[in-house]
């Protein structure tokens, strides 16, 4: 079982308390009616699907209930970091550096 650090509970807790909630930092267009079909499709369906460090949302569903963001390596399944919702993307180079 993966252990995930919840930035609100400030504790590393078992994965079973958490749910995955898709890619992070996807911003809903302010005026959807101004979007072309392609732009709207991009917003709704097109995801990066990276091999490696992936910015994603998680929710501490059976704990504090909060959504937060995480960077997880999709190859090794290792969490590089987690951070509160609304916080800027952490710099990938510093994250990978600390793992070496």
């Amino acid at each position: 079982m993966l252990l995930i650090r919840c930035p609100y509970c400030e504790e590393t807790l078992p994965e079973a308390e958490f749910t995955y909630a898709g890619e992070a930092h996807i911003i809903r267009p302010e005026r959807p009616s101004d979007q072309t079909d392609e732009q709207w499709e991009e917003y709704l369906f097109i995801r990066t699907n990276v091999k490696g460090a992936h910015y994603e949302r998680w929710r501490h569903m059976h704990g504090c209930g909060r959504f937060f963001n995480a960077v997880r390596d999709t190859v090794s399944d290792r969490f590089l970091t987690t951070y509160k919702a609304g916080a800027p993307r952490p710099d990938l180079s510093t994250l990978t550096e600390s793992q070496k």
């Binding site: 509970c9 807790l13 079973a16 308390e17 059976h62 704990g63 504090c64 209930g65």
Partner: peptide, 10 residues
């Protein structure tokens, strides 16, 4: 105190 899971129940 902590909210967590016990088996399949919260």
């Amino acid at each position: 105190a902590s909210r967590t899971i016990f088996g399949k129940a919260e």
